[in-house]
Structure formats: structure tokens, C-alpha cells
Design a protein around this nucleic acid. Structure first.
Length: 472
RNA sequence: GGCCCCUUAGUCUAGUGGUUAGGACGUCGGCCUCUCACGUCGAAGACAUGGGUUCAAGUCCCGUAGGGGUCACCA
């Protein structure tokens, strides 16, 4: 029996978890869960200038919100830790030493400044810059400040079979003796990540396809280390509407921003999964369903544009599947955040029931239905059109009727509105619209009987009176 | 610029040599209806391009164009 796969997600804590990272994490997690493998979380914090503890916490938070738990990593531990690169420095250094001893790597004493000069020269001559191998044969003097470079072949090519992109070939003459360890002993990305993947026994590396060009040199490093290379899966990029790499100027890119806007984690996961992955004509997938179906072989090769409109739709279809209780519970914090005093009570349940068909996320819900919890904002156009002298007797009739009603059952309200209309030879709409404007401030709302019931008798009367004052 | 990758409607995609090129979001229209929404019915809309291979090409090969990625003591 072959070993269960080990996968990882290795973010840099230099900012929140963004959409692209979340999808990478998701795909790794899905495959681990589907295969009964292991999902490792590792923090690549070697960029000390930009890494922060806050970003780290935000990433954990976002991952957990999405429902992606990790089997090994920060806060849960595991047999291959530590899971922070800055705590693994000796490991990288030991491996670098070993490579030097074996002649597969060497110390380079060139300064950054010296190399910059060469780089500029090459640029001026329109030549491709490549480290010339100056220190290749120099003896190892660890007392002198140095970086460690790995020897790369100059001829031939490395070919590997990408799980999503198929065979990819990289000619060796495009490679150079790359720095693997900085002067301060901190590894560079290509080396640190690789040593971690080796020591953490990662067998499948799925990451953004901006890393395809790193893959050949990494495979060469695996060979130098005498370690088996993992399988690679390069995921297509996620782009903004202008087909440029998704970034802040395209709008919110952090997954927690979508939480704040009232998206369901299920929906975000669902939409993210469909960006680059598909299963026939299906669109709606629960996390459980994705675990059952996900496969790297069904991931597409082309970059995908992030479409907020479709994610809204996905969210809406998920919201409509929630029970009134679940929806109400979910909505409370969003109303509260908007300064509206709501409680998870019968009224909220009713609001949420009529809102679920109309609002595609909780932010929209609060925005559209604040009038159930706050004074109306009267739309001037609606006022001009419906709060007219002709409407006055209708409003009065409804006011009197509601005041006289013993209960606000739909049947009684229906009877009341019909009588008010028919006794004057009018259609029901002629009554409903002015009342709607009086009660909600606008011309679009849930059914008028629902509105009356949610508002209750006192508030309905109050708002009707307010409108009546405006007509006269 | 070198190298690598990509290319089915506005967007996400199905498609694995023979289909009226399917689905979804969005758009437009009808129905439903107290408004809005939901629902429902329907419509418009795509194989970047030029050559091959083949009886047959969205599907295979080559070129072109366009897009993206990458070329650091960042990750």
C-alpha cells in the first residue's frame, strides 16, 4: 500500500489571507481530506521586515472560518515541527553545510554591490544577467561573510510532469547558481520551503502557477540532497476583471473582508472551488461534497477572473438553504454592526424570512431592511408619486382598519386591504403602494401584509399617521 | 527582452476526432404578482488566428497574435 499523501499550505504572514491563498489552501486541504492524507500548515516568516504576528493570527482565523483545519502546524503541533521557518534556521544551515561539504554548493563572497554592477552592465548590453560563477572554486572560509550558492547544471533540461499542467520542461541554461542561504544565515524561499518540504515529508506540492519557474531548480535541489521530489500541481492564477493579477484595486481580496460583508463561509468555499475546478455542470458544492469530488486532474490550466457577481449568487443560494433560525442567528451581528438594535426573536425570524429571497448577503439584508428597526428614510420620488391627496382616504381607511383589528393575521389584513380598494372601485395595488411608502419609505419591499405584521400594530399606526401628516 | 505557461460567449466552465458546441452567473423579454425579489418560460451571446494531419478538428501538429508568469542576499 502506498503512503497517504502529505500536503501543505505555507503562507507568509505578511498580510491577511487573500482569495488566491485561500483557494490554494482549500485545494490542498480537499485532497488531504479526500485521500485520508495529512494537511500541514507552515508559516514562512523569513521575510522579517514584512512578517507580523497579527497577519499570522488573521490567517489562522480566516482558515478556520472557512472550515479548513490543519493536522500539523502552529497551535496544533506535530512530529515535524517547528512549523515556523524562523525557528528552523539550524536545519537549513545544516543542510547547506552538507551540500557544501559534498561540493554541491559553495560559499560566495561577492557583495550585493559588486553583483549590482554586473547586473547593470548586462542590462546596458541588453544581455541576460547570470551569476558568472566567480566564487565557484574558492575555498570555503566561513569566517568571511558569504552567501551559499548551489551549483546548477548549464546544459540539458529538467522535465517533470505537473499534475495539472502536464509535462513541463526547463532548459538548464536559463538557471544560475542560485543563492540558497543569505549572509545572515536565513534561507531564501526556494531553499527554505524545499528543506521544509523534505523534512516534513511533503509528497504533493500544490501552489500557484507563479511558481512553475521555480520547480525545475527545486527538483535539481532535491537531487542534490538525495531526496525524492514530491509531485507538483500548479494552480492557475486568479485575476481581476481587467485580467491582471487580483489585487486590492479590484476590491476586497481578503477572505475576512467577505465575512465582514456577510458572506457565508460555505459560499466562499463553494465559489473559490469553482474558480479553476469543475465537476460537469454542477455549481453548488458543500465542503463535504467537495471532499468527495475534488481532484487535481479536474483543475483547469487557464487563469480565472474573479467574478463578484457570481459569488453573490452562490452566496444567495446558500443563504436560501438556511433555516429561519440559522439565518436569524447569522444576521444578528451584522445588524448590530450597523448600529441597529436587533434581538434573535420572532420579529427577526420574520424579517429574515422575507429578506432571504431579496438579499444576497447579510450586508445587503441590513441595508435593505433597516426600516424594520429604524425610522424610515422617505424616498422623495416615492413620496411624490404615492403620498398624494388621492391616497389620503385609502391610508385613512387602512389606518382605521388596522386600529380596529383584533389580530394581524394575513387573512384579516387581506380582507381589510381588499375592502378598502374594492369599495372605491380600485385595484389592490392602489392601496398597497401608498401604504408601502408610508411603512417602508420606498416602493419596493416584501409583501405588504408581512410588513404590517413585522412592524406590529403600534408602529404601523405610527408610520401611517406620519404619512397622513405629509399628505395634508 | 530570454525562458515557461495559457487561449470555448462579458465572466466561470463542460467537451477528450463525428454534438443543433452543453450548463451556470450576468444581460434582455414573457409569465406569476400589492411593489420588489423568488420562481418559471424564452432569447441574444463562444471554439483568438493562419496553415497542416484526417473521410471528419473546439478536440492532434506547426506558425502567428494576444494574455499571464518568471528572471533578487522577496515570498
Amino acid at each position: 500500500m502506498t503512503d497517504k499523501p502529505r500536503l501543505r499550505f505555507a503562507p507568509s504572514p505578511t498580510g491577511y489571507l487573500h482569495i488566491g491563498g485561500a483557494r490554494t489552501a482549500l485545494f490542498n486541504w480537499l485532497w488531504a481530506r479526500r485521500t485520508g492524507g495529512t494537511f500541514v500548515l507552515r508559516i514562512e516568516d523569513t521575510d522579517q521586515g514584512r512578517s507580523t504576528k497579527e497577519a499570522e493570527a488573521a490567517i489562522f482565523d480566516a482558515l478556520r472560518w472557512l472550515g479548513l483545519d490543519w493536522d500539523e502546524g502552529p497551535e496544533v503541533g506535530g512530529p515535524h515541527g517547528p512549523y515556523f521557518q524562523m525557528q528552523r534556521l539550524e536545519i537549513y544551515q545544516a543542510h547547506a553545510e552538507k551540500l557544501i561539504r559534498e561540493g554541491k554548493a559553495y560559499a560566495c563572497y561577492c557583495t550585493k554591490e559588486e553583483l549590482d554592477v554586473l547586473r547593470k552592465q548586462a542590462e546596458a548590453e541588453k544581455r541576460q544577467f547570470k551569476y558568472p560563477g566567480t566564487c565557484r572554486e574558492k575555498p570555503y572560509d566561513r569566517s568571511k561573510r558569504h552567501v551559499v550558492r548551489i551549483r546548477m547544471p548549464e546544459t540539458g533540461a529538467t522535465v517533470y510532469d505537473d499534475l495539472v499542467k502536464g509535462p513541463i520542461s526547463t532548459p538548464h541554461d536559463t538557471l544560475q547558481d542560485e543563492v540558497i542561504l543569505r549572509g545572515d544565515g536565513v534561507p531564501l524561499y526556494n531553499f527554505g520551503a524545499l528543506i521544509d518540504d523534505v523534512t516534513m515529508k511533503i509528497t504533493l506540492v500544490a501552489r500557484g502557477d507563479d511558481h512553475v519557474n521555480n520547480t525545475a531548480r527545486q527538483i535539481l535541489m532535491y537531487e542534490a540532497l538525495g531526496a525524492p521530489a514530491p509531485v507538483f500541481a500548479h494552480l492557475p492564477m486568479i485575476l481581476g476583471s481587467d485580467k491582471a493579477r487580483l489585487s486590492k484595486r479590484h476590491g476586497a481580496t481578503s477572505v475576512t473582508a467577505y465575512r465582514d460583508m456577510g458572506y457565508l463561509p460555505n459560499a466562499v468555499v463553494n465559489y473559490l472551488a469553482r474558480l479553476g475546478w469543475s465537476h460537469g455542470d454542477d455549481e453548488i458544492f458543500s465542503l463535504e461534497k467537495l471532499v468527495e469530488l475534488f481532484d487535481f486532474k479536474d483543475v483547469g490550466q487557464a487563469a480565472a477572473v474573479f467574478d463578484l457577481g457570481k459569488m453573490l449568487w452562490v452566496n444567495h443560494t446558500w443563504m436560501r438553504q438556511l433555516s429561519a433560525e440559522e439565518l436569524a442567528r447569522g444576521a444578528v451581528p451584522y445588524f448590530a454592526a450597523a448600529g441597529l438594535p436587533v434581538e434573535d426573536d420572532a420579529k427577526l425570524r420574520h424579517v429574515v424570512e422575507v429578506a432571504r429571497e431579496r438579499a444576497k448577503n447579510f450586508a445587503e439584508m441590513v441595508e435593505q431592511f433597516s426600516y424594520f428597526y429604524a425610522p424610515i428614510r422617505l424616498d422623495p420620488k416615492a413620496k411624490a408619486k404615492f403620498l398624494t391627496p388621492e391616497a389620503k382616504p385609502l391610508l385613512e381607511a387602512v389606518r382605521a382598519g388596522v386600529a380596529a383589528l383584533s389580530g394581524l393575521e394575513t387573512a384579516s389584513l387581506e380582507k381589510l386591504f381588499h375592502e378598502a380598494a374594492e369599495s372605491r372601485g380600485l385595484s389592490i395595488g392602489k392601496v398597497a403602494q401608498p401604504v408601502r411608502v408610508a411603512l417602508t419609505g420606498g416602493t419596493a419591499s416584501p409583501g405588504i401584509y408581512d410588513v404590517v405584521q413585522i412592524l406590529g400594530r403600534d408602529e404601523t399606526l405610527k408610520r401611517l399617521d406620519g404619512a397622513l401628516r405629509l399628505v395634508t
